[in-house]
C-alpha cells in the first residue's frame, strides 16, 4: 500500500523540487518498531563495550586527553607578518570576495611606504560567522592569511568579542609555539616556492614573475 517513489528516476516537479523516499508505512506511523530497532543497536553496543573485545566507545577524556589534529586542520585565522612585523596583506579583498559567510571586513588605505602602496587599515574577521571553509586562505595571492594556528577561536562573552581585528590576527602568529599546538608545526611562512613575486621586499616591481599572469 505504500507508494515507493523511484529515487533515481524522479523528475523535478514544476517547482523544480525532486521528491525522493517513500510514503510512511503503518509501521512508520506507529513509531514503536523504529524505537525498538534503535534500542537494539544501543543494547548491542552496551554489551559489546561491557564484554566484547572490540570497543565501540569514542569518548575522549578531554582535557586530559587531546585528539591529534590532522595536518590540514583549519584552525583560527592568522595574518602572516613581514619581517618588520607589519601584515603582509595588501588589502586586495580576494579573501573577502571568496568568503561565503561574508565575515571578512577590510578597509584599504594608502601606505606611506611607496613599495607597498596599499595596506589594510582595518582587517576584521567575525569568527562567529566564519564557516571554517578555508576559501580565504586559498584566495590570498600573497599567502598573507592562514588557518594553520592549530587551535579554535576562544569562547567569547559577546558577539563583538568574536570580531578579531588586525592586531589580534597578527598576534596569532607563532602562538601555537608558545601555547602548544595540537598540530605538527610548520616552518614560518616565506614567499619561496609560491611562484609569486614577493612585493613585500620592496623591489619596486622589477622582479621576474614566474607564475601565470
Amino acid at each position: 500500500m505504500s507508494k515507493v517513489l523511484d529515487i533515481h528516476g524522479s523528475k523535478p516537479n514544476e517547482e523544480g523540487v525532486t521528491e525522493v523516499g517513500h510514503e510512511p508505512t503503518t509501521a512508520d506511523r506507529l513509531y514503536v518498531p523504529a524505537i525498538a530497532a534503535g534500542l537494539k543497536t544501543t543494547i548491542r553496543h552496551f554489551f559489546k563495550n561491557l564484554i566484547g573485545k572490540e570497543k565501540y566507545t569514542q569518548t575522549i577524556q578531554y582535557p586530559d586527553q587531546k585528539v591529534e589534529y590532522p595536518e590540514r586542520f583549519r584552525g583560527m585565522h592568522r595574518l602572516v607578518p613581514r619581517e618588520d612585523g607589519t601584515s603582509r596583506c595588501v588589502a586586495c579583498y580576494m579573501c573577502q570576495t571568496a568568503c561565503p559567510a561574508r565575515c571578512i571586513h577590510i578597509v584599504a588605505g594608502e601606505s606611506e611606504d611607496p613599495s607597498i602602496e596599499k595596506y589594510p587599515v582595518v582587517f576584521e574577521i567575525d569568527e562567529l560567522r566564519c564557516v571554517v571553509c578555508g576559501l580565504c586562505v586559498e584566495a590570498c595571492p600573497c599567502d598573507a592569511i592562514r588557518m594553520d594556528t592549530g587551535y579554535h577561536p576562544k569562547p567569547v562573552y559577546s558577539r563583538e568579542d568574536a570580531d578579531f581585528g588586525k592586531a589580534d590576527l597578527l598576534k596569532n602568529f607563532g602562538r601555537h609555539e608558545t601555547e602548544g599546538s595540537r598540530r605538527t608545526a610548520r616552518p614560518p611562512a616565506t614567499a619561496a616556492g609560491t611562484g609569486r613575486v614577493d612585493r613585500s621586499s620592496g623591489d619596486g616591481g622589477a622582479g621576474g614573475a614566474t607564475g601565470g599572469y
Partner: peptide, 11 residues
C-alpha cells in the same frame, strides 16, 4: 598562457 620571459622587467 604563462610567461616565457626570463629577464628582469623594466621598473
Amino acid at each position: 598562457t604563462g610567461s616565457r620571459f626570463a629577464g628582469l622587467k623594466v621598473a
